[in-house]
């Protein structure tokens, strides 16, 4: 009885710690006037509509979405053949590419960011929008790599063998048996990379920070020149979007299994 009560209290304190800053930001974002006050004075959703109507915020939103969509797609396109090869073939030295895929994610991000900055500056492409897409893709390739490796490992071998026995060649097996089975893992890998790319600051800033603004860059720049409730509205929007995406992954897949495997992959 006592123990149960203590547990509730502990969970409550952690939940409060995690939710507190977000609740304040939510409150601030519905202020009627352009004030930083909490509890909010008046109620207005005008700051939310400004994300879509104000040309600067809208172009930052579009830039962020395009960057996240394309970089997640490139990340999956790199991770899929690599994880397939590691599953299908016995080639121990190929593990080095798996290590290369995980390395940028484990090192402090500023290092990867500086690596890209020097690279793009040396090759003369510094500031081009597509450089950020490639940089993000390499940085986040870890996520689809981990989910896809898990997906391949969970395939029941007898299904694949049955298909081969019935005369299907490698290509047919891949298309009709393997692909449908790993599709959920592919989607969640894409979703992880998408959400994290949407929120990433330092790499985007070091690669394209001087030519265009993504939403995190825009928020940080706005933070320097004073406060607008639109920043709060964008933050709430991002939290909601992340919760939605991860909620969907949890609904259609087993997020506990996914996270259980991720931890062991990192170690």
């Amino acid at each position: 009885m006592m123990q149960n009560w203590l547990r509730r209290l502990y969970f409550g304190v952690v939940a409060l710690f995690i939710a507190a800053p977000l609740v304040v930001v939510l409150g601030v974002s519905v202020n009627q006037k352009q004030d930083l006050t909490f509890p909010p004075k008046g109620f207005s959703l005008a700051w939310y509509s400004q994300i879509f109507t104000d040309p600067e915020w809208r172009s930052a939103l579009i830039a962020s979405l395009l960057l996240a969509l394309s970089s997640a797609a490139i990340a999956v396109s790199v991770a899929l053949p690599l994880s397939w090869f590691l599953w299908r073939r016995k080639a121990p030295w190929a593990r080095i590419f798996q290590l290369l895929g995980v390395a940028p994610f484990i090192l402090p991000p500023v290092i990867t960011a500086l690596g890209f900055l020097t690279f793009w500056a040396t090759t003369g492409f510094y500031g081009q929008p597509w450089t950020a897409a490639i940089s993000h893709a390499i940085f986040f390739v870890t996520l689809p790599l981990v989910t896809l490796s898990l997906g391949f490992a969970s395939i029941d071998n007898s299904l694949v063998e049955a298909a081969s026995t019935m005369g299907a060649d490698d290509r047919t097996v891949a298309r009709t048996v393997v692909l449908p089975l790993i599709l959920p893992y592919l989607v969640s890998g894409y979703a992880f990379a998408f959400v994290l790319s949407l929120n990433e600051y330092i790499i985007a800033y070091m690669t394209i920070g001087f030519t265009m603004e993504t939403l995190p860059i825009k928020i940080f720049n706005a933070l320097r020149y004073g406060y607008t409730p639109t920043m709060a509205a964008v933050s709430v929007f991002f939290v909601a979007l992340a919760a939605l995406v991860f909620g969907l992954i949890a609904k259609f897949g087993d997020i506990r299994k996914l996270l259980g495997a991720m931890g062991s992959e990192v170690r």
């Binding site: 930001v25 909490f38 940080f220 709060a232 939290v239 919760a243």
Partner: peptide, 16 residues
């Protein structure tokens, strides 16, 4: 969801 939040947003939330 909190882990994926941008450092910018975390910083802004706590500064508020």
């Amino acid at each position: 969801s909190v882990l994926s939040l941008s450092e910018v947003i975390i910083g802004f939330s706590w500064s508020t």
